[in-house]
Design a binder for these strands. Structure first.
Length: 883
RNA sequence: GGAGGAUUAGCUCAGCGGGAGAGCGCCUGCCUUACAAGCAGGAUGUCACAAGUUCAAUCCUUGUAUCCUCCA
């Protein structure tokens, strides 16, 4: 057989793109496994604005690992990709473009504006798709969906109309979060609160009967024009008797009443609160309870309207505030002004301050939906990883509020409601209509609003599979198996998907909910453009390769913890990939002139059995880790098996045989190595997909594409506990010798005589004998003597000890005897500490009675070992002194 | 105001009832014919603080401090 040549260094650019195309063109991403059951994942659809950032990379890389792992177990596996139209975000992008051209969306008109938005969508979609491909995502592109494509739009219609028919959708006057800049209502979750320095204004409201005044505290004095009451706590002793009295509202000619309501905090300000139902959520509720008038004082653009005194009309709220305060002050209504930090809501898209605003909006009644979703958790139909998010989910569901789903935007799913201008009826329809079904008038008009983006994405797990049609995909792949998402959209998205799925399909949309952390910079800050601390996944791929990106993220993604990284973090994955590359390169070189032979367990040496055992354990660890979505543990197992076990010890051990063994020995050895390499590539594939495929296809014993090979499983035939113990013992001996050499500053090329003296209970004798050459090489021995009787002369040797053995290095050069003695003394010190602890426990009757038998055994062993170390070390000190 | 998370080596973080770990960085020595993106050896920690439970606490409980996040 000829050697297979690999380029000298790992260069992912040579093959990543080619391999991706190969997989895709060969249909490897399609669900084709033959086993029973299915494994399916829907990709959280990235927004078609902007490009993918490191958070997307983390999310998709983890999905890819899960998907590849399950695909290799042989079940039909489907990963559905897609993108989200992202209403406000995308519309903002287009509006920014227009602004640069001096235009507004109204100048274009709805149709032209939407055309332009579709162009933006197409552009960003192409970028996103290519990014996902570069990352190596093994999603089935034939299943790709977009939240505004035909099928999904149909699903949205079906959903809206059905909910309407079930009485779960209503239109109502409601106080909504309103962004004056975006010109739309926002859901509660789309408002971000930030603490901001502000003022607390104490304002005097005089009694109408002239008997003095009361003082109310407010942070937003301009809203006083919408005041319709002042409230006190019903049990506030300070204000007994004032309830029911009338006040003159300053700067106006209106009169308002004092009411009692227990929502008032007695501690805040003066304990008297002005009630502005149209402009504060709490006040709105209070107003409802007390049948207060609701006066809206704002225009849609956030300026004051005709319900305010004329001089303030048309002013933005912040401007009006200044003027109102000045006027109040001039009229002597201001008691005092103090600094006051308070939470201010901002639009999550454009960061403008949110105004609570009274308007007509569409809502979904959430209570019944939430109840079903809670039940799903109680019945364990859904499981969160990590589990603690279940509390968060539960609390949110329990305190659910109705969901405002209308948005005053153009980009999105138009609300399927028509109004007949002739008969005044409201028509909700699955199909577009041109005629009023009641009076047959053509004078009808569709509601101009669109639906919240999440109203389409909450259907994602089943709408992407064809719902509302009863498709094959839906039958085969729904419910999906796992959903991977960061914790920031549990409420926006995850919770709502569960609700919609329970409502429309009667089951949870997925079983496992894998919550990842957020990607942050090394200081723990969110990555953002303004901070300039972002790490671009594409640049990382360019620099280190997609496998490095993937493996590093996986290695760092511990149980939903945030992932803190910088550019250099990815060297870790890159080094590992390079190691894999070079180990393979070495092995493939050694194929020259060899024949692969069949072998069985009886042909295996102790070392062989050890490495197969280690491989077996690694496969088992990885399976357990994957089942619990502990990605870092899985990555760790892969890493330490390949590098520490296979490369550092096993391959090193085989070098000698590969160089100087007989042809037969060489053939057997390289065959075993090829078997291990083939298995390793399968083991590694979910975590470093490109390199493992590239290598796999070059192996003489490969069986097709690694992406669809069977994932290694725990094999009880490959458990060799005794051999493992022996090899660990051998490694220990080598380490002792190396450590001694190093501390004695013996140059690597200097070979010296080494003697191993073994005591009772030393099990690895046969291994030590058969691996004499290997030990000699690693220990730099010119001569390696085994002393089983303890009779050999140790005069003049430098000693070291371990469990069941002593090593003696016969050094002729002058050595630093004192330093060695000091080293031994610290070892004695450590051992004495251990001994003390062990003896204390063993001498403690309560320990002996209560502790587990294994714990007691362990302490006994500890004690024996400590005694051995102390004894030997003391003897060694004497030996050194005699030099 | 409520809830959750974090606090372990210089840095980033695993671990989680019985002798403190990884990667990076650092120190020493090696271009050993796969890999200097490597190899070998080494140093570094009152596991935030305080009580409690336990035969035994970095790990469980409670409290404190500092930091972060979410919700109101």
């Amino acid at each position: 057989m000829k050697a297979v040549e690999l380029s000298k260094s790992y260069n992912p650019k040579d093959f990543e793109e080619r391999i991706y195309a190969y997989w895709r063109d060969n249909g490897e991403f399609k669900p084709r496994g033959g086993k029973e059951g299915h494994f399916s994942v829907v990709m959280p659809p990235p927004n078609v604005t902007g490009v993918l950032h490191m958070g997307h990379a983390l999310n998709n890389v983890l999905q890819d690992i899960i998907v590849r792992y399950h695909r290799m177990t042989g079940v039909p596996t489907l990963w559905v990709p897609g993108t989200d139209h992202a209403g406000i975000a995308t519309q903002n992008v287009v509006e920014r473009q227009l602004k640069a051209e001096g235009l507004r969306r109204q100048d274009l008109g709805r149709e032209k504006f939407l055309e332009r938005t579709w162009q933006v969508k197409d552009k960003h979609h192409a970028i996103i798709k290519s990014q996902l491909e570069k990352m190596g995502c093994s999603c089935d592109w034939d299943h790709e969906r977009f939240t505004m494509d035909e099928g999904l739009s149909k699903a949205v219609r079906e959903c809206f109309v059905t909910l309407y028919e079930r009485g779960l959708i209503y239109k109502g006057k409601y106080l909504v979060n309103y962004c004056p800049k975006c010109g739309t209502a926002l859901s509660d979750d789309e408002v971000e609160y930030e603490s901001e320095p502000g003022k607390l204004y104490h304002v005097r409201y005089p009694y109408s009967d002239g008997s003095g005044y009361i003082i109310v505290a407010t942070t937003r004095p301009e809203t006083m024009f919408g005041d319709t009451a002042v409230a006190v706590h019903p049990e506030d002793d300070r204000y007994k008797g004032v309830v029911g009295k009338t006040l003159d509202l300053p700067l106006t000619d209106r009169k308002i009443r004092i009411i009692a309501d227990s929502f008032v905090s007695r501690e805040f300000g003066t304990g008297m609160v002005k009630i502005t139902p149209a402009h504060d959520p709490n006040d709105f509720e209070c107003g409802r309870r007390n049948n207060l008038e609701v006066i809206n004082i704002l225009n849609p653009d956030g300026t004051l309207n005709e319900n305010c005194p004329e001089k303030y009309q048309g002013l933005p709220a912040v401007e009006a505030r200044k003027l109102v305060v000045a006027d109040l002050e001039a009229a002597g209504y201001i008691e005092k002004i103090e600094d006051h930090a308070h939470e201010v809501g901002h639009c999550y898209r454009c960061h403008t301050i949110i105004e609570p605003y009274l308007s007509d909006q569409w809502f979904v009644r959430m209570k019944s939906l939430a109840e079903k979703a809670l039940e799903a958790l109680e019945k364990s139909d859904i499981v969160f990883y990590p589990k603690r998010w279940e509390n968060t989910y539960q609390r949110w569901m329990e305190s659910i509020r109705d969901w405002c789903i209308s948005r005053q935007l153009w980009w999105g799913h138009r609300i399927p409601v028509w109004y007949c201008k002739d008969c005044g009826k409201e028509i909700v329809s699955r199909e577009d209509i041109t005629e009023c079904p009641h009076c047959h008038s053509h004078n009808i008009e569709q509601d101009s609003d669109v639906l919240d983006t999440w109203f389409s994405s909450w259907l994602w797990p089943f709408s992407t599979l064809g719902w509302p049609e009863d498709t094959e995909d839906l039958k085969k792949f729904f419910p999906t198996s796992a959903l991977v998402s960061a914790y920031d959209i549990i409420f926006f998205w995850i919770s709502r998907m569960i609700m919609s799925s329970e409502e429309f399909l009667g089951k949870a949309p997925f079983r496992d909910i894998v919550i990842t952390g957020l990607v942050r910079d090394k200081q723990g800050r969110k990555m953002s453009k303004s901070l300039g601390n972002g790490v671009d996944p594409l640049l990382i791929i360019d620099q280190y390769g997609a496998d490095s990106l993937k493996f590093t993220l996986c290695y760092m993604a511990a149980q939903g913890q945030d992932v803190l990284i910088d550019n250099d973090s990815f060297k870790m994955g890159s080094r590992f990939a390079n190691k894999i590359w070079n180990a393979t390169r070495f092995l493939l070189m050694n194929l020259e002139g060899r024949e692969l032979v069949d072998f069985s367990i009886s042909d295996l040496t102790v070392m062989d059995k050890w490495i197969y055992s280690r491989f077996n354990s690694a496969a088992d660890e990885i399976r357990k880790a994957m089942e619990g979505y502990r990605f870092n543990d899985a990555a760790n197992a892969v890493y330490s098996f390949f590098w520490n076990d296979l490369c550092d010890w096993y391959i090193e051990d085989t070098k000698q045989k590969l160089l100087s063994g007989s042809d037969e020995e060489k053939n057997l050895q390289i065959s075993i190595l090829m078997d291990l390499l083939e298995k390793s590539m399968r083991l590694i594939h979910p975590f470093l997909s490109f390199i493992s495929e590239e290598i796999y296809q070059k192996l003489p014993n490969h069986k097709g594409d690694v992406i669809v090979q069977h994932y290694p499983e725990f094999d009880s035939n490959l458990v060799f506990a005794e051999e493992v113990e022996k090899v660990e013992s051998l490694k220990d001996i080598v380490r002792s010798c190396r450590s001694l050499r190093s501390s004695l500053q013996i140059a690597p090329e200097k070979k010296i005589k080494v003697m191993l003296r073994t005591g009772e209970g030393f099990k690895a004798m046969d291994l030590v004998k058969s691996e004499k050459g290997f030990i000699s090489t690693l220990a730099g021995a010119s001569e390696f003597i085994i002393d089983e009787t303890g009779c050999e002369d140790t005069q003049g040797a430098v000693p070291a000890s371990g469990a069941g053995y002593e090593c003696f290095l016969f050094v002729k050069e002058a050595i630093d005897v004192d330093a060695e003695i000091r080293k031994l003394s610290t070892e004695i010190g450590k051992a004495e500490k251990l001994l003390e602890g062990a003896e204390k426990k063993l001498g403690n009757p309560q320990f002996m009675n209560n502790a587990k038998a294994e714990a007691v055994e362990k302490e006994k062993k500890k004690k024996a070992e400590a005694l051995e170390v102390i004894e030997k070390s003391k003897a060694h000190i004497e030996l050194l002194k005699s030099i």
